[in-house]
Amino acid sequence: MKLKQSDLWMGLAILAAFFVLAWLPLAPGADGWLSIVVPITMYTVLATSWAIFSGPTHYVSLATAAFFGVGSYTLALGLESLPYPVLLIIAAILGAIMAALVGWATLRLSGVYFVIFTLGLAELTRQVFTWYQNNMGGTRGSYVFTDLTDAHIYWQLLALALLVYLVGWLINRSRLGFAIRIIGGDESVAKHSGINVAWSKIVLFMVSGSVAAVVGAILAPRFVYIEPSMAFNPQLSFMVVIMALLGGTQRLWGPLMGAIPFAFVWEIIASNFPAQTTLLMGVAFLLVVFYIPNGISGVLIRWYHKARSKPGVSHE
């Protein structure tokens, strides 16, 4: 389909926004608040790529931490032998392969199998890595020594965010995007329309998984010392799901609406109620599911439609 004028302006506006954001680390006193901006950017990327798959298909993936951890370990284990950019690419490929395997085993069947499989996937990979390191690697953890600072990590995440938005936008315009919307609407209709349902889902899940793995690789230098229980932290999967749901998954920009406020609120909770963080997180999650089922972006879209239709009504 042809590029619309409005799309073009939108694209330019987004590019400009990214250009401005890229200057953040150079602002005075940046070191202090980069420590919150980096996680926000990280969660935005993760939640957006999560929603690319789980939004239209309604298949809840609880496996972000598994992909993230595989990415982190790719970097940690390969840092001595391979150049950094190559490792990012390898992480992306490994994430995609892992997603393809999980998808191939479960996505041909009903969604329940997929959820169950992803539920323990982080824990499974953690066990396997631990076992591998105990028996073959010798040590439990690995050091990640690079000269990358928070600013470098931030820039990489920003570039990745731009890439994710571009890919998401391209998918939405493509036959694949159309197919996945039909699948999400009625799988039986999709099959009878000639769509390869399983394949479409697997491809999207691969996109999502490979992004999460790259994020894991980019974030690895921040750990300095990583061990399986940190890299495969199930809390990460949980955070990604809650942010994406809070923001809403029907639009590409939805998860961003969730990641920003939630990360800030989270910062406050974590510093004031360190003993109750998990509890509060669970409660927040339940509140989102019950009271904002379509997310913030869903609410915004509804307001927008109301605002637009009101003048029309008053004219009549």
């Binding site: 309604h58 609880l62 949980f238 963080t277 998990t278 509890l279 019950f290």
Partner: peptide
């Protein structure tokens, strides 16, 4: 049925974290 499945997965997932939080506390 599908919507109930998604909703119940999300709620019980949230519930599981809430309960873990209570145990931890």
């Amino acid at each position: 049925r599908g919507q109930l499945e998604v909703d119940s997965i999300l709620v019980t997932f949230g519930l599981s974290f809430t309960l873990v939080g209570i145990f931890l506390w």
